[in-house]
């Protein structure tokens, strides 16, 4: 057998080398499929509407979905460990309204912003401790986090609070232009979150342990990896991302609102899965989740272009999601059979 393995690479022809590539990177396939379908969507929309692929439109895609992108980064960490975090939407709402109320009572932004991030991380810590140390299933622990965040948001304020702080508003109002393209600091924050997330996932021991835990928690533990710490940390990261998303959304809408992000947790989970991450853990990419956000954003933009009414919006989002997952599934299934 050794002999066979040894001899094999030398004898490999071109066809087999292609096989080696797909072998090595089988887990990237769903993400590639997502990219391909994203391109199709964009091209299709352009052909249909004629004015879809404009720099303005594409810039807005990032701007409008910056908070989703940040949440998706945190969610990717959690899902890769085979966990789930339902609290992200309400954590975002809580930190957003909390920040807005601090600002409106005169606390400077340099203090408010760290407080927002830390309070998000603390809810994450609570969830992580429940999951790791008290053996609570992630779905339930984060469901408690969902109610907690939402409730705290209502406790802070029942109605929206306007933000007038110049620092926070600057995050949204500044437009860095390159020709017709533009980007705001919130967009930069989102891209930064993706970049940092991707580097942490792929280039640090912590990140690789996240994958290890998702592959097999038992094996990871027997291999001497620091499983408990990692599992708590991913929820803290997700909470931190919730806090950052709260900041970005508050800047984007110029106000904190306790009802923000209701149902967002499911959007984010869908986005992460569209980006090629498996809910069973061990496989997935932060960059894939970014693609997922673009797919999701594009679908929404298409709908707003069509000007559909509320009922149709739901249906079309559902149908496009369906189309997407079925095509993705077909692509993955076909190449699995092929290799």
């Amino acid at each position: 057998m050794t002999a066979m393995e040894t001899a094999a690479p030398a004898k490999k022809g071109l066809g087999e080398r292609v096989g080696t590539f797909t072998n090595r990177h089988a887990s990237v396939l769903p993400t590639f499929a997502a990219i391909a379908i994203l391109i199709l969507l964009l091209v299709g929309a352009e052909l249909y509407f004629g004015n879809f692929l404009t720099p303005r439109n594409m810039s807005a895609l990032l701007l409008d979905n910056a908070y989703l992108m940040i949440l998706a980064v945190g969610m990717t960490f959690v899902i890769v460990t085979a966990g789930i975090d339902l609290s992200v939407g309400s954590v975002m709402a809580f930190t957003g309204i909390f920040g807005a109320s601090l600002l409106s009572s005169g606390v400077p932004a340099v203090i408010t912003i760290p407080v927002m991030l830390v309070s998000g991380a603390l809810i994450g810590l609570l969830i992580g401790v429940l999951v790791q140390h008290f053996n609570v299933q992630p779905f339930i622990a984060s469901l408690a986090g969902l109610f907690l965040g939402r409730g705290l948001a209502f406790v802070v304020s029942l109605s929206s609070i306007r933000v007038e702080d110049p620092v926070v508003l600057w995050l949204q109002s500044t437009r860095i232009r390159i020709g017709d393209w533009y980007i705001t600091p919130t967009g930069i924050l989102a891209l930064l979150a993706v970049a940092v997330g991707a580097v942490v996932m792929h280039k640090t021991r912590f990140g690789r342990t996240v994958y290890a835990v998702g592959g097999s928690e038992q094996s990871a533990r027997l291999m001497g990896l620091k499983v408990p710490r990692t599992k708590v940390m991913v929820y803290v990261i997700s909470g931190l991302c919730g806090g950052l998303a709260g900041l970005v959304l508050t800047a984007y809408s110029g106000a904190g609102y306790p009802r923000n992000g209701i149902g967002t947790e499911l959007d984010v989970i869908a986005i992460v899965v569209i980006g090629g991450t498996l809910l069973t853990g061990g496989r997935g990419y932060v960059l894939g989740s970014m693609i997922g956000v673009f797919v999701y954003g594009t679908i929404k933009t298409i709908i707003s272009f069509m000007g559909a009414e509320q009922s149709w919006t739901h249906i079309i989002v559902g149908l496009l999601l369906l189309l997407f997952i079925v095509v993705q599934r077909a692509i993955v299934a076909r190449s699995e059979r092929g290799s």
Binding site: I269, A270, I274, L279, H314, I315, V317, L321, L322
Partner: peptide, 11 residues
């Protein structure tokens, strides 16, 4: 979770 999300949205 994704399969049933479709109907959750469209339903």
């Amino acid at each position: 979770i994704i399969a049933t999300l479709v109907l959750m949205l469209a339903g």
